[in-house]
Amino acid sequence: MLAAGSGAVPPVVWVPVVAWCVAWQASLQHEVIHGHPTPSVSFNRWIAGPPLALWLSYDRYRATHLQHHVDERLTDPLDDPESFYVTERDWQAAGPVGRLVLWSLNTLVGRLVLGPPWTVVRFALSEARAVWRGDPTRRRDWIRHGVATALVAIVIDLGFGVPLWLYALAVVWPATSLMLLRSFAEHRLAADPAHRSAIVESSGPLAWLFLSNNLHALHHERPGLPWFVLPKIYRANRETVLERNGGYRLSGYAEVARRWLVTPRDHPRHPGRAS
């Protein structure tokens, strides 16, 4: 970043590297939420690091992600904070333009391009409403996050000489896209909650970036397993894991792109939620 700020390294080189690192930090924060990589909660929280993505409060991410792990409510637009489905009422209220956006978000290209602002705005509005209603926990979390974000912004802008607008557009946006690439196909509608989580058999750089969270069905079964153990456990129990998750398996992110790059993977409306 110092070299980038001085102009010694062109943006075409440093931007993807920094964006990749910001997305990797989000994967590390996910591991910290589940009690890794050390037995010390305070140390794990410290190594989760500053809010490099700017918009993502670790404390709020932790709270919403643990709610997401109630598998009986997976994909439910009211009970699963990470769901991209909407209720029947919201679908009807969206209007033609809103429905087009919702359809677009269910394609991979739409999720990667439009998903970051959609995710940030939706998350911010949800949290702002709770703060407005007087939720003391959220107020405390966002004050803490605001202070930490201000310090990160000062370091980026004044310390590294990278304008915040450039960092937001060229780093935070693609980093968030990488996070959304991982989550795009990891859940589906299914009557059996055990069949809702995917296995994406990636073993290349993306598996490292996501810290093995591509083995998502196994992660939901055993969230206490650290990332570096998941691949070994999966290889030893592959047939059993796939039997338990209803065979929801993808060979890698190339298959995800082939199937859903411009084709919606599902209807945006959740069939079990009228309002």
Score class of each variant (00 low, 15 high):
M1K: 09
G5R: 04
G7F: 00
V9S: 10
V13R: 09
W20A: 06
C21S: 14
C21G: 09
H30T: 06
H30Y: 10
I33T: 05
H36S: 12
P37S: 12
S40T: 03
F43I: 10
F43H: 05
R45Y: 14
W46T: 13
A48P: 14
G49R: 08
P51A: 02
W55T: 03
D59I: 02
Y61T: 01
L74V: 10
T75F: 00
P77C: 07
D80E: 11
D80Y: 11
V86H: 01
G95Y: 03
L100D: 09
L108M: 06
V121R: 06
A128H: 11
T137S: 14
D141N: 14
W142S: 13
V147E: 08
I156Y: 11
D157K: 03
G159L: 12
G159W: 09
P163Q: 08
Y167K: 01
Y167S: 02
L169G: 07
A170G: 04
V172T: 08
T176W: 01
T176K: 05
L180P: 00
L181K: 01
R182Q: 05
S183V: 06
F184E: 00
A185N: 08
H187S: 13
H187Y: 09
L189C: 04
A191T: 13
P193S: 10
H195G: 07
R196L: 02
R196V: 03
S197M: 06
V200M: 02
S202W: 03
S202I: 00
L206C: 03
A207W: 15
L209F: 12
L211N: 11
L218W: 13
G224D: 11
K232F: 15
L242D: 15
L242H: 05
R244W: 04
G246F: 12
R249Q: 13
S251N: 14
Y253S: 03
Y253W: 07
R258F: 04
L261H: 01
D266L: 07
H270C: 04
G272M: 10
G272P: 15
S275H: 14
